[in-house]
Design a protein around this nucleic acid. Structure first.
Length: 284
DNA sequence: TTCTGCCCTTGGCA
DNA sequence: ATGCCAAGGGCAG
């Protein structure tokens, strides 16, 4: 089935920008599992072609439009974050890099796993947890697994998670799974909650600090104003906006970024992050 | 209260 | 080879 897209959209940079962790490139197609659907997808110009299962493709098409945030007014967003000239330059260099609307529980686990870790290994851990504790789905002769539910991972427990290689993050994921099961952490409710409230609730979980809470908020809870500050962004902000100064503490950087980048700060952050990484890749 | 330094699992990379 | 680093956070002092 095909999706016709009448706005800036770049499948490759969007799927490979560190927001989603279960996409593999297999002969020109991206293969992944989104919200329980096995998706194989590729882009040719403004046309996106995909196969899906187990649900019918018409159902998956609706789901994918939501996943890719095609409901965003991307021109208004680009215009807003483009008030910053560095972001504007990156938007014109990489048009179509989008935020995704990922599943909150899966996103939460992925970003707990991101602590002091690299993207390749986060992908590996997410895939191992799925293979071990998720349910199999078959499509075009290939098998993938759904991402395990909180109950699945709570049942697996800390020791099993360590065995998969989560290391010191294993107890954090275990505890988060139990909090969701016990109703102490209500992720669907946080989608509707205001950003500060959602962030505070996430930070009650051990292993979720300010940065990881902001990642979960922007990628899965519809908080487009959230602005995750990681090593790349800290470096970029320090070098570009506070040159010749000692790097301000994150609290100060965050306050400044909220004010400077505004209500679509999450989009601006994604461009800064992606631009920095591509630049480094190009330098080598 | 806020800041600093150290530790934590694992593995890819130079 | 072996030390560094990786979309950080917890904890002690």
């Amino acid at each position: 089935m095909e999706l016709t897209i009448d706005q800036p959209f770049d499948l490759e940079s969007t799927l490979e920008s560190g927001q989603a962790h279960r996409w593999k490139k297999v002969d020109g197609w991206y293969s992944g599992v989104v919200r329980g659907e096995f998706i194989q997808i590729r882009q040719k110009g403004q046309v996106v072609e995909f196969c899906s299962g187990p649900s019918p493709e018409a159902t998956a098409a609706v789901m994918l439009r939501d996943y890719f945030r095609l409901d965003d007014d991307i021109h208004a967003i680009y215009s807003d974050i483009g008030r910053d000239s560095r972001v504007a330059a990156m938007v014109s260099k990489y048009p179509g890099l989008r935020l995704l609307r990922t599943e909150p529980w899966e996103c939460l686990v992925a970003f707990i796993c991101s602590a002091n870790n690299n993207i390749a290994r986060i992908h590996q851990l997410m895939e191992r947890m799925s293979d071990e504790f998720g349910n199999p789905i078959l499509l075009n002769g290939q098998t993938r697994h759904t991402f395990p539910s909180p109950a699945d991972l709570a049942e697996a427990g800390e020791a099993e998670l360590r065995r998969l290689g989560l290391g010191f993050r294993a107890p954090y994921v275990d505890q988060a799974a139990r909090a969701v099961l016990a109703g102490k952490l209500d992720l669907p409710a946080l989608v509707r909650a205001p950003y500060p409230e959602a962030k505070a609730a996430l930070m009650e979980i051990k292993g979720i600090g300010s940065k990881i809470a902001d990642c979960i908020a922007v990628f899965s809870l519809d908080k487009l104003e959230a602005f995750p500050i990681d090593v790349w962004i800290r470096r970029a902000l320090s070098e570009w906006y506070f040159p010749g100064q000692k790097t301000p503490p994150d609290r100060v950087l965050l306050e400044w970024a909220q004010e400077h980048f505004g209500r679509y700060g999450g989009y601006a952050q994604q461009y800064l992050f992606h631009g920095q990484r591509l630049q480094k890749k190009a330098d080598r």
